[in-house]
């Protein structure tokens, strides 16, 4: 088996409602897959099935033996009521060594907030801390569920830039749910459009012209995407870290 994770014909229904219908997806080495779709499309459920948190009604999910997963949730359930420092949170219940910890801290730029309380972090800091935790075990596959949902536009760009940098430096595959398609365009190799079933999938450029995509997101979104792709592609070749600057 070549792929790291493969899900075949996954079906999930809850109290009579179909959430996932015949969804198949493969994650190979060095993939960068972005899942988009409207609310209630089953995006989070698909991630849960892939990670093994949820048992689908039917379908086969295969993970390569000893595959290491990293998971970054959108936010934490509880942060206000419990006093805990960033460093403690990152390492809680994790298997890791000192070198990986140091590496992750530098990668995600959290060296200055290690002693801060989790409760007082800004949105951007919190996302970097969650990212750091998910990277600590040197995962083969990193799974992110709308990682930049709670950030403002510049925060989102900063986060995706960071993610792109980590992706290019590490040997890992990324599976991400995100609505910020125009921002992740450069990095994404494959887009999957999910609305309970897979409507369309392929490279970002193909997707933008797909009638299914157009009917779901409208022409405006497709045009926005096309513009970003173009601008980003040109800049990207000149300067590897230019994602933040071509926003006009």
């Amino acid at each position: 088996m070549n792929s790291l994770i493969s899900a075949t014909d996954v079906n999930v229904s809850k109290s009579g409602k179909t959430i996932l219908k015949d969804v198949s997806i493969q994650i190979n080495k060095n993939d960068f897959i972005t899942i988009i779709g409207p609310n209630g499309a089953g995006k989070s459920m698909l991630l849960k099935c892939i990670m093994g948190f949820y048992q689908p009604n039917s379908g086969i999910i295969k993970r390569k033996p000893n595959l290491k997963l990293g998971y970054m949730p959108q936010n934490l359930d509880i942060i206000k009521t419990i006093p805990i420092k960033v460093q403690k949170f990152i390492t809680l219940k994790k298997k890791f060594d000192k070198i990986s910890l140091q590496k992750v801290i530098l990668e995600t730029q959290i060296e200055n907030i290690l002693d801060k309380q989790l409760t007082i972090l800004s949105g951007g800091e919190m996302q970097r801390v969650l990212l750091a935790r998910s990277l600590l075990n040197n995962p083969d596959v990193l799974i992110l569920d709308e990682p930049a949902q709670n950030l403002d536009v510049s925060g989102q760009m900063h986060f995706y830039k960071l993610l792109q940098k980590i992706y290019s430096k590490r040997e890992l595959s990324i599976l991400m749910v995100s609505h910020d398609l125009h921002l992740v365009m450069v990095s994404t190799k494959q887009v999957i459009c999910l609305s309970n079933h897979i409507c369309c999938c392929g490279q970002p450029q193909q997707i933008a012209n797909d009638p299914e995509f157009l009917s779901m997101f409208g022409k405006d979104m497709a045009e926005v995407m096309a513009v970003y792709q173009h601008a980003n592609k040109e800049n990207y070749e000149k300067n590897n870290n230019s994602l933040g600057e071509n926003h006009h």
């Binding site: 849960k48 990670m51 948190f53 997963l69 998971y71 949730p73 934490l76 359930d77 509880i78 942060i79 419990i82 805990i84 949170f89 809680l92 219940k93 994790k94 935790r133």
Partner: peptide, 18 residues
Amino acid sequence: SSLVLVTLDEDLAKSEGI
């Protein structure tokens, strides 16, 4: 540590096999 992690986030705890 399992109790603290579940308290913080159930999905995060699941991803550590709890």
